[in-house]
Design a binder for these strands. Structure first.
Lengths: 261, 261
DNA sequence: TTACCAGTGACACCCGGTGCCATACGGTAA
DNA sequence: TTACCGTATGGCACCGGGTGTCACTGGTAA
């Protein structure tokens, strides 16, 4: 799930064993690369050295990794398809934003699976611009998935002009990703200690409260709909309405909400 | 403002002329590169060809551009410092989110300044992964600026536990950037026709309404202040109040705001 | 004139990445 | 067992982006 993978799925005994072998080599190369990067630095380590350290030929390295950079992020490709699977297999009744949150959680788990490696990699990405860009690009791929998913799961039923739907989908996706980034980086800076996933869940709560106005708990309504919306969020009550809505209508909505609160 | 720039600011007649000359060469190279990219494709064009086409040596190319990619995005570095200047020189009374919006508008203007070039570049970035990543990384640099700015301009006065401040800053910054990205891409897909800046302003209205809850119209309160706040933001009016404020007080504030709007 | 300096051209070099071919390993059919 | 075949590998040549270095040029200040 990362390189040529010419044969689609040779699901025979031999095929499986060959795949396992292949996977082992890939892992060996990745660990060798990581070790060298950690000790010598990223740029100071050549592909030849990595290959030699892993006991393979230089050419073989590039058969397992598209580039030197990929050797340090070996799991993004797999994770990307896993995330897509999460989205594809989601219960249609689940709020799309929740689905997306479960998706990004999959990414976080990838990091949390090997804390030490992730922390070391974080150290490298901070000082090597190339790696920084690479990671940013990787995360952008997840975001793209989410944007498309949200856009495809807007409130199909409601009859409203969804001119701003794509915008809201993009904003929501970027918010989820931003939450992930924030929690992840904080955790990495702390040395990979603590329950990241719980922290991420809290971040989800925060952004859901933040986006709650426009992107409801269920489907996603495009703009603050023509009808004013009022929501109680924690200690605050928030009212949003179009200025062209009748003031009386707005006041009534808010009064109702306050009464319920 | 992009490469070596060893001499800080030789503000003499000769120095200025030399700088102008330098800038002209840089521009010539960039246009030559753009022309070749557009006709032959990005990867099929070598740096040697660009240099030859611009009438300079290969080495000179790399004195003006750090990489082949930079030749296609010659303005990001300058724009980045302009954005920083916008943030630095902002009126302290301006809502930080507005300041950030003005910042990203600066980026949009860079694209809008030469619509044809931007459209052509967009075509290239869509089909060349390298350029895609490059552009994503560029935008991420702006986002980073915004996150830091917002974080530094939280409501200093209020005494509240701002545990989630960094998260909210990051989410807000990413929302602004997402709005920019969305508007820009739509405009580019439409061939660079129409008033982008107006479209961006509308997008700002939408996200301000969306984020209005947590990131207030003025400073960024983690939660709402004791006194209810009401603000008119573009097409929408947003009211925020603590649930423990008296309902009558809340209603009065909102009524006032609606009257003013 | 002389001394200086920034930009330039030319050359050599490193290294990431690719195409190509020969080979070795392993399973399968005869 | 033997012949066949697909796959992973090793080795090699090659391309092209990016860097270090040095010599040269033209314009400027002293």
């Amino acid at each position: 799930m990362s390189q040529p993978v010419k044969s689609a799925a040779p699901d025979t005994a031999s095929g499986r064993r060959a795949a396992a072998q292949r996977h082992r080599v890939r892992r060996d190369i990745a660990t060798a690369a990581m070790r060298l990067f950690a000790t010598q630095g990223y740029e100071a380590t050549t592909v030849d050295e990595i290959a030699a350290s892993a006991g393979v030929a230089r050419r073989t390295f590039f058969r397992h990794f598209r580039s030197k950079e990929e050797a340090i992020f070996p799991d993004h490709d797999d994770t990307l398809v896993r995330v897509q699977e999460v989205l594809d297999s989601a219960d249609p009744r689940e709020p799309p934003l929740d689905t997306v949150c479960r998706g990004i959680t999959e990414v976080l788990r990838m990091y949390a699976y090997m804390p030490e490696v992730s922390v070391e990699r974080y150290r490298l990405t901070r000082e090597v611009p190339t790696l920084r860009e690479r990671e940013i690009a990787s995360v952008a791929r997840y975001e793209r998935l989410f944007t498309r998913y949200l856009l495809g799961h807007f409130d199909e039923g409601a009859q409203r002009d969804g001119d701003d739907d794509p915008l809201l989908a993009e904003v929501a996706a970027s918010a989820v990703v931003a939450a992930h980034n924030h929690v992840l980086r904080r955790w990495l800076r702390a040395g990979g200690k603590g329950d990241v996933e719980a922290q991420l869940d809290h971040a989800f709560d925060v952004i859901k409260a933040t986006l709650g106005t426009a992107i409801g708990p269920g489907r996603i309504p495009a703009r603050a709909a023509s009808a004013p919306s009022v929501s109680r969020q924690g200690e605050v009550v928030v009212a949003v309405a179009r200025t062209d809505a009748s003031p009386a209508e707005i006041m009534r909505s808010i009064e109702d909400a306050l009464r319920r609160a």
